[in-house]
Design a binder for these strands. Structure first.
Lengths: 337, 337
DNA sequence: ATGAAAGCGCTAACAG
DNA sequence: CTGTTAGCGCTTTCAT
């Protein structure tokens, strides 16, 4: 019922190989032949069967993307960007969710049945750590995202967390703020986003001769909006003066702004607020949120391109680490100096 | 290098057909044979090649999901739910984004190349309308979501917009509010979420003898957070008294709460706020948002199950319309009576 | 209950 | 520049 290469070849009066050559833009085809074939293709409404193509070629043109949960805004937007980048390369994306707080599930995504139907995987874990590095030694192209594991056996695309957090903090300092609270800190954690962003914060303070004050640090393991509010409220309750807040992500910042407002503090007059992630929604909050775009779109594009290279060329090059450039999006919650 | 059915058959000393029978849980296999084969499978670490399976069987066990944009919270959470439901059925999901405000792109997703590699499509358009109903007459299993097109040629799974909006409004009325503003209205629109939810709102007023007051209606085409704030600010600026707000979705409600707060109005003491969508984030706002869960998870599960039926059984039954039950999630922004 | 053989639609070698 | 052939790994008749 649906046309095949064979049908086209018959109608065009050529061999099936010639049709294949036309379809795949093989250069050495006589123009007249090409036209003839293209007419037959149009007449029959032929489109290649991707399954047959995959079986024969060993490639599916489908990639996997594994993220914790699409209900987390950052991962939703990252996924949106990966899908857009993949589509631009003619790839389809099968999205998988590993859940939050489930290390075993993250590890299992590396070897589940879907790996046999994708050419490669872009993987953003939130629970695995350096001790799991061996699990990344899989037999297919894998691009790692995030800041849980460095120096693994695979390509790694991520953001400049320390530098970006330092720049964000210095942005606040340069706009005249000296007492900068933090919201969302993971105490005693040494790997992951929180630890790296805290390091950038401390570097900025040190470089500008501002003492680090533990009373300004609001902890929170989870990074929902309510956590931002509570973490901020904690700092406020301590009664220490502060004139700015660095929220370790935008969702926390939304909550922190709510808590500040509740406490009668004006943004940015009394307290400037800086977020991190560059979420779309950050431009629509009131006041709009000054935040760090860590280069999400670049990360998505680069992850897709890196994966494509590994799929196309053979997968024997040494692993690479690619770091996105960041941008501070200057908005109302923290005006520039 | 990677084991095939053939390898397993050789090792187990049976034919390839028998191995296939074991792998596919075909019932009539002698227990001793089954054991032998299973051992061989384990020894070789055999897993079926999904591409070959698809080529032969004509099914891929992959479904498509087309939504406007994952950066819109409702669609991110819907996608999360669809992926979870599909996984529970052993299906993979290829996610596609049609963008916002691009009717042609929505139409094109129905016929693009990906349709040849999926068993069916779950499709949630935002721009297509009743005039596009013929485009839905595709040759593969298609499940329509949303409220742009009714009475089309395909299965349709959606929410009870009118009833849910009416119940939400009556919830406010029963808690003692009589001057209920609306945020996010699409003026003069007759199809789509806004029109249906407005209808529910008007029905609730009428049923309770409350006159409809146009001065309470805040219009907004887009439904970002800032729109909710502006739409709310419009109503406030008119100087008409009101004691509740029905935001036509949760994102608008977040913005509306911000505008209320800015105007010095307390939630819920001065003004109760009701949202719509049941977003995860609605439980983390401050105050937490009372909202209508329109049955998002049920919609996702039902869409997947409906699609599976169409794929499994032949696709000749008349189209069905399936409507989710809704729930009002009682939180701080609008306490119950 | 199991085996033999055909072939899904395509691409890759190799001829010519 | 184009045709022939083989076969990717599996499921599906059809036999037995």
């Amino acid at each position: 019922m649906v046309a095949t290469l064979h049908d086209v070849a018959l109608l065009a009066g050529v061999s099936i190989k010639t049709v294949s050559n036309v379809v795949n833009d093989y250069p050495h085809v006589r123009p007249s032949t090409r036209t003839k074939v293209e007419q037959a293709i149009a007449e029959l409404g032929y489109t290649p069967n991707p399954t047959a193509r995959s079986l024969r070629s060993g490639r599916t043109n489908v990639i996997g993307l594994a993220v914790p949960d699409l209900a987390l805004a950052y991962f939703a937007e990252l996924t949106a960007a990966v899908i857009a980048a993949a589509e631009a390369s003619g790839l389809s994306v099968v999205v998988e969710q590993t859940g939050t707080g489930d290390r075993a599930r993250e590890i299992s995504v590396l070897t589940n049945a879907r790996r046999k139907m994708t050419d490669g995987l872009i993987f953003s874990p939130l629970e695995m750590g350096p001790e799991d590095v061996d699990h990344l030694d899989v037999g297919y192209p894998l691009v790692l995202l995030g800041e849980r594991i460095f120096d693994g056996p695979t390509d790694h695309v991520t953001m400049r967390n320390v530098e970006a957090a330092r720049a964000a903090t210095e942005y606040l300092i340069h706009s005249g703020r000296t007492r900068i609270a933090v919201v969302g800190a993971h105490e005693d954690e040494v790997i992951g986003s929180s630890a790296l962003r805290m390091q950038g914060y401390r570097e900025a303070l040190a470089a500008n001769g501002i003492p680090f004050d533990p009373a300004l640090i609001g902890p929170s393991i989870e990074w929902h909006r309510a956590n931002g509010a509570h973490s901020m409220a904690d700092v406020i309750a301590r009664g220490v003066p502060f004139d700015a807040v660095f929220a370790l992500n935008d969702t926390l910042a939304f909550g922190a702004m709510r808590a500040l407002q509740e406490a009668g503090l004006r943004i940015p007059d009394d307290v400037a607020v800086m977020g991190f992630d560059g979420l779309d929604e950050a431009q629509y909050s009131i006041p709009s949120l000054t935040t760090v775009d860590p280069g999400r779109d670049w990360i998505a594009r680069t992850a897709v391109d890196t994966l494509r290279e590994r799929v196309r060329i053979d997968n024997t090059q040494p692993p690479t680490l690619k770091l996105a450039e960041f941008t501070i999006l200057e908005r109302e919650s923290a005006p520039p100096a």
